[in-house]
């Protein structure tokens, strides 16, 4: 196995609320190899977006902080504890991020071409002419049709799918090693989603990117993920190669999530809903975070918190039922 591009170890991110610090992300371990898409899947409050913000060095202070002992290494270099200026250089140069709603990330008063060129100049120190040529090149790369003409249009003249392509172009312009994608297709229609997902897949293959793809949609995971990390209430509860996760889910949460999804490809008969609601970060007890909703929970699950234990070479699961010796 190649050395990971991005390696997150024991990441804990806390937020201040009502005078106390509450962890939104707890002891998360992740790694991404070149040419690999790791999908982080979870519901609201699972901590998946906070994890991405932490990797980008964007945890908002003073309301939030990365706890001591956390480590985020990008191509071997530790990011936790870096100053703002060094982080700025890492962001964009080595790791770039795309968001759910591209319109809010684009400046409505600048043409699309100017914005892509600006991001090229900021990170690669090219002149105006060269930056514009480079902007055109990446807009072509992300398949914006007739890019040479459209690069002088403004963001509002682009459709949602095209704006997302522009965001991806801006990210690529800086030759990042890792692309963080936070629900990039959630606001898009399914046919447009398919196009954007194909694009991310192509770029990953052709440029050797590592992709951290954050989504709540298990269907999207199945389309693009090589490996999957399932998050619940701030923890990774299961990691597995994508094919194995859908064949043999090991964590009761993953299992329950799959059983509760209506499917377009076949009749599933009765749905089996997961009882209760996603807990807020302030109401997590000492035991397994999923125990209150888990159909198999035992006394021990409510009392102490299981660790993420490896299962075979490529998988791991955080569940007493799977790891406890009989």
């Amino acid at each position: 196995m190649t050395e990971p591009l991005l390696e997150v170890r024991d990441l804990t991110v806390e937020f201040r609320s009502g005078g106390a610090w509450h962890p939104a992300v707890r002891n998360v371990d992740l790694s991404i190899a070149p040419r690999e898409t790791l999908a982080v899947v979870g519901e609201s409050g699972s901590g998946k977006s906070v994890t991405a913000l932490a990797v980008m060095g964007l945890v908002p202070a003073p309301a939030g902080r990365i706890a001591a002992g956390s480590s985020i290494r990008l191509s071997g270099r530790e990011l936790v504890g870096l100053g703002e200026r060094e982080l700025d250089r890492v962001r964009g140069d080595r790791v770039a991020m795309i968001f759910q709603e591209p319109m809010t990330a684009l400046n409505p008063t600048m043409t699309v071409g100017e914005q892509v060129a600006e991001s090229v100049r900021a990170h690669r120190g090219l002149g105006a002419q060269a930056a514009r040529r480079e902007a055109l090149r990446v807009l072509d790369l992300v398949k914006v049709p007739s890019a040479a003409r459209r690069m002088d249009d403004y963001p509002h003249q682009f459709s949602g799918g095209m704006r997302q392509r522009v965001m991806i172009a801006m990210a690529l312009a800086c030759h990042p090693a890792v692309l963080l994608a936070d629900e990039p297709t959630t606001a898009l229609d399914v046919t447009i989603q398919a196009q954007v997902l194909s694009l991310v897949e192509d770029l990953k293959r052709e440029h050797g990117l590592g992709v951290l793809f954050i989504t709540h949609n298990l269907g999207v995971v199945a389309l693009i993920a090589d490996r999957v990390a399932v998050m619940y209430a701030g923890e990774v509860v299961e990691t597995a190669p994508a094919a194995e996760l859908f064949e043999t889910p090991r964590h009761p949460y993953t299992e329950a999530l799959l059983a509760s999804m209506p499917r377009v490809d076949r009749d599933v008969g009765a749905l089996e809903p997961i009882q209760g609601n996603v807990p807020s970060i302030r109401e997590i007890g000492p035991g397994c975070a999923f125990a209150p909703r888990c159909a198999h929970a035992q006394a021990r699950c409510r009392e102490s918190r299981p660790r993420l234990e490896p299962e075979g070479a490529a998988r791991s699961v955080r569940c007493w039922l799977r790891t406890a010796s009989p």
């Binding site: 398919a194 298990l218 269907g219 994508a242 094919a243 194995e244 859908f246 799959l258």
Partner: peptide, 13 residues
């Protein structure tokens, strides 16, 4: 284009 939670859909984008 509707995603299906099944890894066999992996290469059929």
């Amino acid at each position: 284009a509707s995603p299906v939670p099944d890894a066999r859909a992996r290469f059929s984008l």
